[in-house]
């Protein structure tokens, strides 16, 4: 898959950027590739839902082959950003660019919505003339009367979008970078435009772009631009220091996930609540 103009320019600038060799994470909010691996190992050990992967393209020589990026698959996204009432009312202003928000836990923990009738199931063939006629391919004789099978599964499906979240190392900004790939309630990949519905509107208009996945060949996804990450993290680290809380670099991604959650408030990506920083 060829790259977008954005990606080409970004990769060109990244290639010219020397790799950081010394750590100054606490003052700059930036990390080295070696620190990315360390904090990734820590995250995967504390939250096994995050896993290291190698991908099938774009291997970075400065990262171990088996630890090119972290991925958290099938993260539920029960509702759209616009449906989260009062989401920003509890926002805690911590920065001119980012807010640390408190998602309405009551609503996010509610039972997921049920599809109440079949009409609400989006049929891919309904609005796409390029698709073959699915009805022609149905084979009724394969339907078996079976007391052990739950019937009407199409009506029982949980109406939940899911996302695969990727954390990759961005050489240019020397921070992790988030990429998301979404699926609808039926497991069909979402278009980039549909994924934008699950990005906070502030970020969707400023820092979210459609880009090729850095390590999955030919797959497009939505990228949350990392230009503000280091600035925001360094401010939070300073705040932690002022409150006499010790920060170690292994905790970097735990902090990062809490911050990035503001860009994707409806995607339940933060499974780290039980860990204090």
């Amino acid at each position: 898959m060829s790259k977008t103009a954005h990606t080409i320019l970004h990769d060109f600038r990244a290639a010219l950027t020397p790799l950081p060799k010394t750590s100054d994470c606490k003052t700059t909010g930036k990390i080295t590739p070696e620190e990315f691996v360390r904090t990734g190992d820590f995250l995967a050990s504390k939250c096994p839902t995050w896993e290291w992967e190698k991908g099938n393209s774009g291997e970075k020589s400065y990262l171990p082959p088996e630890k090119q990026f972290l991925i958290f698959r099938n993260v539920p996204c029960v509702r759209r950003v616009g449906d989260i009432e009062g989401f920003f009312s509890e926002a805690d202003e911590s920065d001119e660019h980012w807010v640390v928000t408190k998602v309405n836990q009551e609503s996010s923990n509610e039972e997921v919505l049920q599809i109440e009738n079949e009409e609400e199931v989006r049929l891919p063939s309904d609005d796409d003339e390029d698709l073959p006629d699915i009805e022609d391919l149905e084979e009724e004789e394969l339907l078996v009367e079976d007391p052990g099978t739950v019937a009407n599964t199409s009506l029982e499906l949980l109406a939940t979008r899911t996302y695969d979240l990727t954390l990759a190392y961005d050489r240019l900004y020397q921070t992790p970078c988030l990429f998301i790939i979404g699926y609808d309630e039926k497991g069909n990949p979402l278009t980039p435009q549909e994924m934008m519905q699950d990005i906070s509107q502030d970020h969707a208009k400023k820092t979210a772009t459609v880009e090729p996945h850095p390590h999955l060949s030919g797959v497009s996804c939505v990228k949350i631009h990392p230009c503000q990450h280091a600035h925001t993290i360094s401010k939070l680290i300073m705040q932690m220091s002022a409150e006499r809380e010790e920060f170690i670099v292994e905790q970097y991604l735990l902090l990062f996930i809490k911050i990035i959650g503001t860009a994707i408030p409806a995607i339940e990506c933060d499974q780290t609540q039980s860990f204090s920083l």
Binding site: E118, V121, R122, L123, P124, S125, D128, D130, L131, P132, I134, E135, L137, E138, E139, E140, L142, L143, N152, S154, K186, N188, P189
Partner: peptide
């Protein structure tokens, strides 16, 4: 499939 019939799904 989404019609509740034995049949494939298609995606574009």
């Amino acid at each position: 499939n989404a019609r509740g019939k034995p049949g494939p799904l298609a995606a574009n």
